[in-house]
Design a protein around this nucleic acid. Structure first.
Lengths: 316, 316
DNA sequence: GCCTTCTGTGATATCGATTACACCAGAATC
DNA sequence: GATTCTGGTGTAATCGATATCACAGAAGGC
């Protein structure tokens, strides 16, 4: 009935008497409005789709919390999809979510090819990227200052006298590209030559970091390691311990992300702090803004990082 | 059009020719079925609601992963709600989710009063509890063997000669009650008297564990601590370090949960492993079963725990 | 007292997929 | 050749909330 709808959705013109009667009936019948019907008619689901590369990583918890808390303030709920590190599954999920007619998407650290993302933008899906910038398309992105963050880390090591600094890369990810490029740039700025022997890759995991360190040790000598994320830095640290290499005396280690573990490992991991909660909150805020407005402003928000000095770099 | 529906939902009777034409049209028009309409008509959303006390805790990540992976196999998506440790918010969310007509709920470590849970059951909501048993209602629960887990921990300490074993409780949670009761029971079984001076409470957080240890130290003497969860155990461990108390030489510490951190702190935390992924997966499986069947079997599934001995108990 | 202007309320169409039902062509049966 | 059957297709009702419209009755103006 129309009047019920009027009562529920901010009364336009309902008399106090009927409002009372309606509310009473609602109470008695334990009536709960049907969101599907509402969504069908109003063309809004008040749902946001969140695509995460892998729920398993702690890294994403804070992000998620930032998104959730911001979304719920505007009465939006989240459908969370775990792509299990597969860009194919990401695309599958995007289809599924668009079938569910979510009002918008937040896509975290996507592995999708640029063309795929641009395609989504062209089809008019409202979405915001976290941790990825796509220049060829009209998209809003929330990212951290990878360049300045990596620069902080490498400069810190150089300032404290380290000259041969190895770098453990991740696997083909834009964040990694930027951090690696900065590593090279900072070396050059300080008159240090770049040695490709000093670079290895891992899968952003502890295991990957441990293996990368081992390969590096077989190839050459160095006194410091900068890893593209904390997981790999911690993996490298454990491998070093196993091999009897003292950290930081024999080998300084610096990571990136400042995950919770970084504070607890021994020695404490020096790392670049990333405002994870903020990243999620900003993305949700930006997305919700664009949903309301007719006129959309695409923008790239870059959040500042901060170097957290602990013991693993030996500079404490 | 009816034929399109027939093509999409496992053709009953459609000729190969028309099927082709329909599929081609779908392709051309980039047609995506509207899940809201489907849900409205079929009275099924293929959505599950998940209510978590607080997304912030790492503990829940593995759980979530177990739920998600199991749900997606049956084409169910998850709406995740973070109750921020408030049972009022839990109830709010339950209303919201039932308005969204989710097909079922998974309620994790709920703080809701028993009557509230029983009420949900009476109203016929299909749901499964994780980490909570409600005897007065027809509900399925997936829990861990708190009693045998706590017994493993305490017996391990007693077997290795510890006599004054302190216990750090959490805040009014069924898990905690069971673990505490078991602590007392095991002490009694081994002829050790229970000393209320040896018990303090924390908020299941590191900070809480640290403060509880401090209060304990002011009251009495003891050589071992069993904490109701790892977070508190780790907090206590750090507090001990700050106070110059050596772990495990001066003080043995044992936790519960086996969170990822437990392996990384120094000394490694001896703890009771909880099959977190399994817990989530079983809950989702159980829920999906009940959704299909007319005839529902309520059951309580108890998953086994396992003591993981590391260095913090000094028995390695 | 007649006409206009509100104000509040019920009736109706709509969103898009599903489903029961009607229908029709062509095959099968007598 | 007339009748029955069957596989395939279109028609229309339905799910529940909302938006538009129409209309009854009250209030106000001349």
């Amino acid at each position: 009935m129309a009047t019920v709808s009027r009562v529920l959705n901010g009364s336009e013109k309902v008399s106090a008497a009927t409002r009372q009667r309606v509310l009473q009936a609602i109470e008695q019948l334990q009536y709960t409005p049907n969101a599907s019907a509402k969504a069908l008619r109003s063309r809004r689901t008040t749902l946001l789709g969140v695509v995460i590369p892998a729920v398993s990583s702690i890294y994403y918890l804070e992000l998620l919390k930032g998104i959730e808390n911001t979304a719920i303030e505007s009465d939006y709920n989240l459908i969370i999809c775990d792509a299990q590190n597969s860009s194919l599954r990401e695309i599958e999920y995007m289809k599924l979510l668009s079938s569910r007619r979510v009002d918008g998407f937040i896509i975290i650290n996507t592995l999708m090819p640029e063309e795929e993302v641009a395609g989504l933008a062209r089809r008019g899906f409202p979405f915001v990227l976290i941790g990825r910038v796509v220049k060829s398309a009209n998209v809003s992105s929330i990212v951290v200052a990878n360049r300045s963050g990596a620069a902080q880390a490498v400069e810190h090591l150089i300032r404290h006298g380290y000259k041969r600094i190895a770098y453990i890369r991740g696997m083909f990810h834009p964040d990694d590209e930027e951090r690696f490029a900065t590593y090279r740039k900072v070396l050059a700025e300080h008159g240090l030559s770049f040695d490709p022997q000093l670079v290895e890759r891992g899968h952003f995991t502890e295991e990957g970091g441990a293996q990368a360190l081992q390969r590096l040790l077989q190839k050459t000598e160095f006194s410091a390691v900068f890893a593209a994320n904390d997981e790999m830095a911690i993996g490298a640290m454990e491998k070093a311990r196993q091999l009897g290499i003292r950290v930081p005396e024999d080998l300084a280690i610096v990571g990136f992300d400042n995950i919770r573990l970084a504070r607890h490992v021994v020695p404490g991991l020096t790392t670049v702090d990333m405002p994870k909660y903020q990243l999620g909150a900003m993305a949700a805020k930006k997305l919700l803004e664009t949903l309301g407005n007719e006129h959309i402003v695409y923008e790239r928000v870059v959040l500042k990082t901060e170097l957290v000095v602990r013991q693993s770099c030996g500079c404490g």
